[in-house]
Amino acid sequence: MKRIVLLTDFSETARNAAVYGIQMFQEKKAEFYLFHAFDVEFSGSPYIMQVKDEMAEESQKGLKKELSILHRQFPNVRIHLISRYGSLIEVLRMEMSEAGLMPDMVILGCRGESALENFLLGSNAFDVIRHINMPLIVVPRTCSYRKPKKLVFATDLKTIDDNIALPLFELVRYLNAELMFVNVLEDEYINRLEAEETIAGYFPDVKLSFHFIDDSDICKGICSFAGDNGADMVVMIRYNYSFFERVFHPSITKKMVLQPEFPMIILHGLPKN
């Protein structure tokens, strides 16, 4: 049974992401974990234990309130509550350990006008993407769920491995969705036929297509392609630092990211020598 972690800070943004995640995976009979982390900024305070206890109580109250709201919409979905003391990254890493939860997917919201804009502005979402090596789904604040039928995979066609392919293959098969690989043309030579054959081997019986676009602005090119082709989600690989950071480079202007809002799947590959 799949374990889906729904990160919350009790905001409407987080609640919307939780609803999105439950709607996506409820037919898979997954177990959901509503997860809240709280921390004390001034650890040297003599009242630290009192403050910590008060925050722990507030965390539990907030989780129970969110659970009540979610159960009104999803009365038959099993949702566990997890409250942890510490920084979000620290406690998530603990849950990823062998003694912890070991989630199959982490779902979180972002507050920007689009997922891309949110990353540019900096957020907890980007911190999670940078430091948590688990499959992630990042849901823009105003995005409502509709069953994804087309996923656009923005890639350089060179950084696909089992660690990336397996969770994506399982998700695409579960959704019965089409997977569209899109590569923004670069100066470096790519043997397209060989790359396509290699990638296709990871996704048997999945409807695949490969596309190459020429745009000096990678972010704009990917968003335009996704919008023009009716995509429901965009997939990115985190360990491909040069490609990833070119997409989210701070110099990209705000107007370039004010595109239709796409939830994003972030996958983490194994580092290559």
Rank of each mutant, 00 (worst) to 15 (best):
E12Y: 01
V139F: 05
Q259L: 08
E117S: 05
M134Y: 01
F38K: 09
N133H: 14
Q26N: 08
I89H: 02
R173M: 12
P140E: 11
N16L: 04
V182H: 14
L116N: 11
R173W: 11
F126C: 00
I265V: 15
L108W: 00
G62P: 01
F74H: 03
G112I: 00
L108H: 09
P140T: 11
R84V: 10
P260M: 07
F38Q: 05
S97T: 04
D104S: 00
F243C: 05
I132P: 03
T198V: 12
E66D: 15
R3C: 00
F25A: 03
E95H: 07
E117C: 02
V182Q: 12
A18R: 04
M256L: 01
I129E: 05
I69G: 03
N273V: 12
L81V: 08
D232E: 11
I132M: 07
F210K: 09
I82A: 01
F248E: 05
M233V: 12
K28F: 10
T155G: 09
C110V: 15
S59A: 14
R93H: 08
K64Q: 07
V77E: 01
S11N: 08
L168D: 07
V206D: 09
L70Q: 03
H249K: 13
F25Q: 03
F243W: 06
P75D: 04
I213Y: 04
L168H: 13
E98I: 03
E197A: 10
I164F: 10
A14E: 02
L267E: 08
R72E: 14
E194N: 14
L166E: 12
K150R: 15
S43M: 07
R192F: 13
E197Q: 15
P140A: 07
K158E: 12
I89A: 08
H131L: 06
S45Q: 05
E54T: 10
P167T: 03
A14G: 09
F74I: 02
S97R: 00
F210E: 03
K207C: 06
V19T: 15
E186H: 14
L67H: 13
E27K: 15
F74W: 03
D228Q: 13
D217A: 08
R72T: 11
F42M: 14
G269T: 02
S251H: 00
K150L: 06
V257Q: 00
K255Y: 07
K150P: 03
L101C: 08
H131Q: 08
E54P: 00
E261K: 14
Q26F: 01
M102W: 01
I266D: 13
L92A: 01
H71P: 02
D127T: 08
E31I: 02
N176L: 07
R130I: 05
E188Q: 14
G86C: 08
L101K: 05
N118M: 06
V91E: 10
K64R: 11
E27P: 04
R146K: 15
A154I: 12
T13K: 04
L185M: 13
F10Y: 06
N183A: 10
P103Y: 02
P250I: 05
K207N: 15
I265M: 04
D156K: 07
H211V: 04
K150W: 00
